[in-house]
Design a protein around this nucleic acid. Structure first.
Lengths: 220, 220
DNA sequence: CGCCTACCTTACTATGAGTAGGTTACTTCC
DNA sequence: GGAAGTAACCTACTCATAGTAAGGTAGGCG
């Protein structure tokens, strides 16, 4: 199936050599696929090596361990996600709009890049390992961004609370994203709306505002 | 250290036999400890067996697989958590109070039963496995409960949104709980307050409540 | 050309999940 | 008491896979 990279049907094990960076990219791409599909535990390094068209020690040469490979893949995917959401917020004319756009970008990413998302969910595999701090550090880039945005809406000096709110926001999004997978009638737009309803308006005000609001169904 | 269960210092490998239910309990207790401490991946069935004071095939006899054991342990811990939070809400005189009490109970659980909490976080180990649906089913018991509570605060017939809100609530709590671990100055009470501030009041109103410094109010 | 370096391999070890098949203690019923 | 049955338990394996040691090969550069 996967025509790795060799001279296609020619006999002989004539692997093409390639520069480190390129190989690394290749390995990461395959790793994302396999980890996402099978899950961390059920994934074998042998399989990844084979699909890349290279031998196992190469993987270890480049990533040190199975965890290292997963970590690199996660870092990669998270960077991409962060970039996408960050980009989405530029040009917003209000904090609310920035939040809304960020959320929409997030849910669209989830919806469109199922593979990357599935990979990101595997970060819990690191619990109890030395790399778990590293994972949290990667996450923090995202939450720090959000905290800055949210800070404007909290009492001055409520640094801590802004951080907490950012964490909650991220947690809420991740959880609802999982939930969306089981309800395919929920579009990114709808997910965004639900999230805004809760996070922005708050439960106390939802009931009051209940009668009048009913916007953007935007089905596909 | 762990004086497993045998005749304490007596010589000989004279293991005491015990009824299935009792052994099972024992195994689960040890499993919780070890999984929580080492993480799923780094935990070996051999170690658990040894700490229980029993041979490996017994574990498989009772739980079928490593995943099965983790699943049973998680189910156990989640039941306990659900019980605790559920109990906390009885006697509340308003939905708001119920929510508040539930949150506090949750954060106290997290704070007091670190082991169980660490275990619960491992559920992502199931991604890509056949048991992942089972895990979601267990979670659903919790969210269904919350959805019912939240429904009162949403437009009539907004079933879906109530579910979504419940998921978000749970996600937010779980994430902030992780965050709390890295900030030990955050008490359960404070965590509860932060959560209520965001979920109940909503960002829009937090801003109003605090003399905002930043730009545009964006109200309707 | 011949050597050097970076890419790559074959062929191992070690560990840990899961199992086959037998053994021992406790209960039951005569 | 003792035979018979059963539930708890064990030893001793197989097999997959994470990780490693030690060496081979392409291609650039003096």
């Amino acid at each position: 199936m996967t025509v790795t990279n060799n001279s296609p049907n020619e006999r002989g094990p004539r692997r093409k050599r390639m520069p480190r960076a390129q190989r690394e990219r290749q390995m990461l791409d395959v790793a994302v696929q396999v980890f996402a599909q099978r899950g961390y535990v059920a994934t074998s390094m042998d399989e990844i090596a084979e699909r890349v068209g290279v031998s196992k020690p190469m993987l270890y040469e480049y990533f040190n361990s199975k965890e290292g490979l997963l970590l690199a893949a996660i870092r990669d995917a998270r960077n991409e996600l962060r970039l996408v959401t960050e980009q989405a917020t530029v040009g917003a004319t209000s904090g609310k709009e920035a939040l809304e756009r960020g959320l929409l970008a997030f849910f669209r990413f989830i919806d469109g890049r199922k593979e990357a998302w599935s990979l990101l969910r595997q970060e819990m595999a690191f619990i109890g390992s030395s790399a778990s701090e590293e994972v949290e550090a990667i996450r923090e880039q995202q939450t720090a961004l959000n905290a800055k945005l949210l800070q404007a809406y909290l009492p001055i000096g409520a640094q801590r609370e802004a951080e907490a709110a950012a964490e909650m926001l991220v947690g809420a999004c991740e959880r609802i994203a999982v939930w969306c997978e089981r309800h395919d009638d929920i579009t990114p737009e709808l997910a965004t709306q639900y999230t805004m309803n809760l996070i922005w308006d708050g439960l106390a005000n939802r009931q009051a505002a209940a009668e009048s609001t009913q916007k953007l169904p935007t089905t596909r």
